[in-house]
Nucleic acid binder design. Structure first.
Length: 478
RNA sequence: GCCGAGGUGACAGAGUGGCUAAUGUGACCGCCUGCAGAGCGGUUUUUCGGGAGUUCGAAUCUUCCCCUCGGCACCA
């Protein structure tokens, strides 16, 4: 079975076939860093992280580029509000973004170019577009892309007609500008002398809204991409603009073979927006939920579906994930007691089947929801075998290896690090805990339940969970 | 106006022509346990927004209708 990918360009599920063999050039639009990133960003980058990891898992050589837009009107406006230097501000939020991604176990891109470090590439590209007649300079020093030169590509991604687009934008605020045609978009925007900007052949100014992604994706993606990704909100105008300007510049078609877009994140069934006050930054959510839970929450939904965030849905995701972690923990526990023999109690066959099921689901446009559903079935069977039979250590090790293998792709099983005992002011060291457990065990053999439960409650208050099993006590930090 | 997504059991959410419609959460029952937790088994679950049609057979195809949500130049 072949990997199938939904392509926004054709609106169809297509067999995935990169332009050159196993080489995959992938580009995902990064954030504009004028504030801390919110959960919607997390949704997008985690989704594409899983896609990237799965491609690697399937043997593709992935070159992943994701940019950082560190200069833009929004950055400048925010800086004016706070009185900060815009470049200091964008650097601060760039760091915040990178930190969030690391926390959520998103692999760093192979290349993470910043707009401010590519001004020369951008002005060169803009110059080339003027040269080949697809862009024009206005007396005000703005440079626009001339859409009449590639009219056939209008609506190529959004699947709308020019009339439809114009009609839709008709009610919007009429921007007074010097465009020839309302749908033309800016490549280089002139700026007043005092504002952040760079010198260019057209005067002091800044890059337009879309050009940076074209320039950087072509530079780091060999001029032509296999996959270009981003949120659904970027389909129009951002990604369409990229197609116009990139193909005009490189002469290569298509600019990207596959276009992939992730669905939105809503909060309590409503679209997340600042005006509604239902806007959560990644950091805010991290203060309440573990990174593993947040990541699981995202991966537990197909990337193209709308995902609804609420305390309840996140809590549910946390409980569901815990179920899988418990199985891993059960297997690790069984391994301590296991013999080094080759008795597998059917585990090996189970793993083979589970791997096949995982690949089948993921091959179907990265159906992570179904893939995880299969994992629950697998885990239940493993629990059943581990609790009623005595598989050998080799088979048990293989089960753990299989979970690691899945984790390489989904990144959802990494145990959340509990606080280290020395970090807890009144915390208990491992020795203290072991000692208390021994005391409790003594009380239990004497059937002194009151005392036994008191010790358990005391530990629970300090964040230690105790579980009595058939073959001993297990404990863990919450 | 234009474009798109979707309506599946208490809830969440897979499944696109055919074995008993995945899976998770919740609730309840049972096993296990001193109790709890975890785990296992079961119930909630003959049912897929409504009508008509195609078919030996439909949640899945056709058609009509009802409803929800999102996008249309700030946006992941």
């Amino acid at each position: 079975m072949a990997l199938k990918v939904y392509n926004t360009l054709t609106r169809e599920l297509e067999d995935f076939a990169p332009i050159q063999g196993k080489k995959v050039n992938m580009y995902v639009c990064g954030p504009t860093v004028y504030d801390h990133c919110h959960l919607g960003h997390a949704r997008s980058y985690v989704s594409f992280d899983v896609i990237r990891r799965y491609l690697i898992y399937r043997g593709y050589d992935v070159n992943y580029t994701s940019n950082i837009t560190d200069v833009d009107d929004k950055v400048i406006n925010r800086a004016k509000e706070t009185g900060e230097d815009p470049f200091v501000l964008s650097r601060k939020f760039t760091e915040s973004f990178i930190e969030d991604m690391e926390t959520l176990a998103v692999l760093p891109p192979d290349t993470q170019p910043k707009v401010t470090e590519h001004i020369l590439d951008i002005t060169e590209t803009v110059g080339a577009l003027i040269e080949n007649g697809t862009a024009y300079v206005t007396p005000k020093g703005n440079v626009y892309y001339d859409l009449t030169t590639s009219e056939d590509k209008i609506g190529i991604l959004s699947h709308q007609t020019a009339e439809g687009l114009l009609e839709g934008s008709g009610n919007r605020v009429e921007v007074e500008d010097d465009k020839r045609y309302q749908l033309d978009f800016v490549l280089w925007k002139s700026a007043p002398e005092g504002e952040p900007g760079w010198n260019s052949p057209w005067g002091w100014g800044r890059p337009g809204w879309h050009i940076e992604c074209s320039v950087m994706s072509m530079k780091y993606g060999s001029g032509q991409l296999d996959i270009h990704g981003g949120g659904m909100d970027l389909i129009f105008p951002h990604h369409e603009a990229e197609i116009h300007q990139s193909e005009s510049c490189s002469g290569k078609h298509p600019f990207s073979k596959y276009w992939m877009h992730n669905g939105f994140l809503t909060i309590d069934q409503e679209k997340m927006s600042k005006s509604l006050g239902n806007f959560f930054t990644i950091k805010e959510v991290l203060s309440k939920f573990s990174p593993g839970t947040i990541r699981f929450f995202i991966v537990y939904t197909h990337y193209r579906s709308t995902i609804d965030f609420s305390e309840e849905t996140l809590e549910e995701a946390g409980r569901a994930r815990k179920r899988l972690l418990n199985t891993i923990s059960n297997v690790k526990h069984a391994l301590k007691e296991a013999h080094g023999d080759g008795i597998d109690c059917g585990l090996i066959e189970l793993i083979t089947g589970a791997r096949e099921a995982f690949i089948n689901s993921m091959d179907d446009d990265f159906n992570t929801r179904e893939a995880i559903g299969n994992l629950f079935v697998f885990s239940r069977k493993v629990n059943s075998i581990v609790s009623s039979e005595k598989p050998g250590s080799v088979a048990l090790e293989d089960v753990l290896k299989f979970y690691s293998e899945i984790n390489e792709v989904l990144g959802i099983f990494t145990e959340d690090e509990g606080p280290a005992s020395e970090d807890i002011p009144d915390g208990l060291s491992d020795e203290d805990i072991t000692e208390m457990i021994e005391l409790r065990e003594k009380a239990r053999t004497e059937k002194d339940w009151a005392r036994s439960d008191a010790i358990r409650d005391e530990l629970k208050e300090k964040g230690i969970v105790i579980e009595d099993g058939k073959d001993g006590v297990r404990w863990g930090r919450m």
